[in-house]
C-alpha cells in the first residue's frame, strides 16, 4: 500500500549547476549527495516537508537517465511513492497485468525499489520504494526470489 510521495525525480545536466536554484534559491535542504556507480548516476536529495526532490545527473551515456536527457532535455522525470510492502505491491501489480520495468525489486537510492513501465500509466514514470530498514524487518533473509 502506498503511504506517501517519497520524492519526485528531476533529471539535470549537472548537479553542481542545479543546486544554486533548488538549494540556495528555493531553500530546500540538501541532505544527501552521492555517486551511485552501479546505476551510473550522481544524485542529490533535497528535503521539502516530509517529501524530497531528487536531482539526477547521468555520469555514463548508456542508462535511462542519460537517454532521457539526450531525448527530452532536463526536466521532471519520475515520481516515487513509498510503500509499506514493496514486494507485495509489486506482486499485486504484476497479478493485475500492470506493465513493469522491474520484474523484481532492487536496491536503489530510496531503498528497495521497482519502476513501473511508463506505458502502464499513460506516460508517467512511477517508482515504488520501501526504505531498507523497514524492508529488512519484513524480509530478514533478503529479497524473495522472482516468481
Amino acid at each position: 500500500m502506498i503511504t506517501k510521495v517519497h520524492h519526485v525525480g528531476v533529471v539535470v545536466r549537472a548537479i553542481d549547476e542545479a543546486l544554486p536554484f533548488w538549494r540556495d534559491t528555493l531553500g530546500l535542504k540538501l541532505h544527501k549527495l552521492e555517486l551511485i556507480e552501479e546505476q551510473g548516476v550522481k544524485a542529490a536529495l533535497l528535503s521539502v516537508g516530509d517529501s524530497e526532490v531528487e536531482l539526477l545527473e547521468p555520469v555514463v551515456s548508456d542508462n535511462g537517465v542519460a537517454r532521457y536527457l539526450e531525448r527530452k532535455g532536463e526536466g521532471l522525470h519520475h515520481i516515487c511513492f513509498q510503500s509499506d510492502d514493496v514486494e507485495r505491491d509489486l506482486a499485486d501489480m504484476k497479478a493485475k497485468g500492470t506493465e513493469m520495468i522491474d520484474q523484481v525489486t532492487r536496491v536503489g537510492i530510496a531503498g528497495r525499489i521497482c519502476f513501473l513501465h511508463p506505458n502502464a500509466m499513460d506516460g508517467a514514470l512511477i517508482e515504488l520504494c520501501q526504505p531498507l530498514d523497514d524492508y529488512a524487518v519484513q524480509h530478514p533473509a533478503g529479497a524473495p526470489e522472482a516468481v
Binding site: V48, G49, I79, M93, L116, M121, D122, G123, A124, I126
Partner: peptide, 25 residues
C-alpha cells in the same frame, strides 16, 4: 518551503488514466 504541495501529471484521457492509477497503485 514547507511541503511538496502537489505534482502535475498530464494525460489526454482523464478517466482512462485515472482508472489506471486507481487499479495499479
Amino acid at each position: 518551503p514547507t511541503a511538496l504541495d502537489h505534482v502535475s501529471v498530464t494525460t489526454s484521457d482523464l478517466p482512462g488514466t485515472a482508472a489506471k492509477w486507481a487499479t495499479a497503485l
